[in-house]
């Protein structure tokens, strides 16, 4: 077992009590040259809670994820992990601190079997060789524990449906000791039923004591599982509130850009009467 795997195993058994602040963003901003991608965003991610980050395309959601995931570095503000000032220099570093990201493309290799995908980059070995039997068994068990019942872990992951692949990716992150799970629009490409399945896994991960960051542009997906909501608009935070202070309608309004939408409605109906 490598040092990293040992660290992962240790983390798995000692998730902090629910409510503990795992990640805190304080006035985080990111500039790419003279382009301001994100400015003054603050929020917290607690163990056993889901922090939802909502925003339209180009609102800064990707930049937000990349900073917490270690893919990019913030240029303003403070990122605290376990209360400690942190700037990640690589995704690996974030991963080693227990922050795992499930990207929209899921980071899976379509042509490779499910179990090889599950352990990719953290393979179990016996001597110099892969311990395939143990990896297959663990994959099956971990998926079953998340309530995912897959036919055959030896099939290429590309043969699974979008929802199933999403669930495998989440189960993988949870298995490898994620304390904070960042989900990048996990429901964006899914149908209604498949989205429901994924939302259930998000709740399952939360109930296991993980802090979840759920990125989405759909307030109807966010509200049922979310404990805290951050709404981004043009790189700025327009809302950071716990569920108790934010009724569903207000969130939907913020997200839809209430005023803009009614303007659009007006414009469209005007077009119609004009023609």
């Amino acid at each position: 077992m490598s040092a990293r795997q040992a660290a992962q195993a240790a983390r798995r058994t000692e998730l902090p009590p629910p409510g503990t602040v795992l990640v805190e963003l304080d006035g985080i901003g990111k500039r790419y040259g003279n382009v301001l991608a994100l400015a003054d965003v603050s929020t917290v991610v607690r163990a056993g809670e889901v922090t939802c980050v909502l925003g339209d395309n180009g609102a800064g959601k990707s930049t937000f994820i990349k900073i917490i995931a270690g893919a990019h570095q913030h240029t303003d503000g403070v990122l605290r992990v376990d209360g400690e000032d942190t700037t990640f220099t690589s995704p690996r570093e974030a991963l080693d601190r227990g922050i795992a990201t499930v990207y929209q493309d899921l980071a899976v290799v379509d042509l490779m079997p499910i179990w090889r995908n599950f352990f990719l980059g953290s393979e179990l070995r016996r001597g110099p060789f892969l311990d395939s039997a143990r990896m297959k068994r663990t994959t099956r068990e971990e998926l079953a524990r998340m309530g995912i019942d897959l036919r055959d872990v030896d099939q290429p992951i590309g043969t699974l449906s979008g929802g199933e692949r999403q669930c495998v990716a989440i189960a993988r992150a949870v298995h490898f000791g994620a304390r904070v799970l960042i989900l990048d629009e996990p429901t964006a490409a899914l149908g209604v039923k498949q989205s429901g399945v994924v939302l259930r896994y998000i709740a399952a991960a939360r109930d296991r004591g993980l802090g979840v960051v759920f990125i989405t542009h759909n307030p109807h997906h966010a509200y049922p599982v979310g404990d805290r909501f951050v709404v981004l608009k043009r790189g700025r935070s327009v809302c950071d509130a716990p569920k108790a202070e934010l009724p569903r309608d207000e969130l939907v309004g913020l997200m839809a850009g209430g005023a803009e939408l009614s303007a659009l409605e007006h414009e469209l109906s005007a077009d119609r009467t004009a023609s």
Binding site: P91, D105, L106, A107, V108, V109, L111, L120, G121, L130
Partner: peptide, 23 residues
């Protein structure tokens, strides 16, 4: 049968995915 082999398939099959999981 080895980790290196797994990585070879991964970098060829989906380079960015491989990078994301630490290959």
């Amino acid at each position: 049968r080895t980790r290196a082999g797994n990585w070879i398939f991964a970098v060829g099959g989906a380079r960015s995915a491989a990078r994301q999981v630490g290959v």
